Simulated scan of single mutants.
Amino acid sequence: MLLEGKNAVVYGGGGHVGGAIARAFAREGAKVHLAGRGLPRLEEVARQIRAAGGGVEVARLDALDEARVDEHADAVAAGSGSLDVSVNAISLGDVQGTPLAGMTLADFVRPIDTAVRSTFLTARAAARHMARQRSGVILTFGGGGGSPPVRDYSIGGFHVAVGAIDVLRRQLAAELGGHGVRVLTLHSGGLPETFDDAEIADGIRAGTMLGRAATLDDVGRVAAFAASDLARTMTGTSLNITCGAETD
């Protein structure tokens, strides 16, 4: 198992992406600590993990709540003996489909504020423990901040938000590398399973070189690899799982 004996915190663990990552981590032997605002969804993911024989704990918290994030990370490290992996997979609350010229400031700024604040707070909380351990992995989800702008469809502040996450990831990696901590981003280019609109889902697939897009299961598997020692030489970079929709 790739993550045997590891303790992993997944913020947004009740969502599509967070749940997929949490289940993959548990399959690879990690004890998963699900954190998020929606307790029923967290409990459902926890039920699935337990049914498969995995170890899991659930905590209700808002990743934008500084005191609660710090408190939870401290509790995980103290109660489980370490904090080895931290994943931020919370929803950014972005508004899409409205042209920037017609968007309110609040709608534009919301995903940027959420992305930067939650990534900073969750990464900082984990880094304090990981630096002392001289090991650990911090994962963010989004990437693509350096990719070309999207034509014919407005994604609001989302593109700016993932760009900010990219910058923060690189800076964290530079500062934490000397302490044995790795920082990576998973970049999917869009997951058809998470869209109710079939036209959008089909458009994501059509834009890839492989004629298919990453699945939630793909995201979980790559996240488990990134968090494991198999990826010990990787930090400061984005893992491109866009099926060729974007090239590096």
Rank of each mutant, 00 (worst) to 15 (best):
V116C: 07
R23L: 12
L230N: 15
V69E: 01
S228F: 02
H33N: 13
T235Y: 05
E199K: 14
G5D: 14
T119Q: 15
H16A: 15
E246Y: 15
A227I: 00
I90R: 02
V162L: 07
V183W: 10
A8R: 03
A231F: 09
L3G: 07
M209P: 08
A125R: 05
G178M: 03
L3E: 07
S188L: 09
T122H: 04
V183C: 12
F25C: 11
Y153Q: 15
M1H: 13
S82A: 14
P111E: 01
T215N: 01
E175H: 09
T215V: 01
R128C: 00
A24L: 06
R205Y: 11
A51Y: 08
A231Q: 06
S82N: 12
S188G: 12
F225E: 10
G157H: 08
V17I: 14
A245E: 14
A24V: 10
I49M: 01
E57W: 13
S147W: 15
L100A: 05
A201G: 15
R37Q: 08
G190I: 10
T114M: 04
D62Q: 05
R37N: 06
G79W: 07
F141C: 07
A213K: 10
E43K: 14
M234K: 05
L2M: 14
D62N: 06
G93T: 09
D74H: 07
G163K: 06
R128V: 14
T122C: 05
L139E: 04
A26D: 03
A231N: 02
A78G: 10
L210M: 15
Q48K: 12
A164H: 10
A73T: 08
L172D: 03
I241G: 11
L186Q: 02
D197I: 03
E44D: 14
A126H: 11
S228C: 05
V56Q: 10
G211W: 07
R128P: 00
D107P: 00
F108C: 01
F225I: 06
G157Y: 09
L168R: 01
N240G: 03
K31A: 14
D84A: 05
L92V: 05
S154P: 13
R134G: 11
T242N: 10
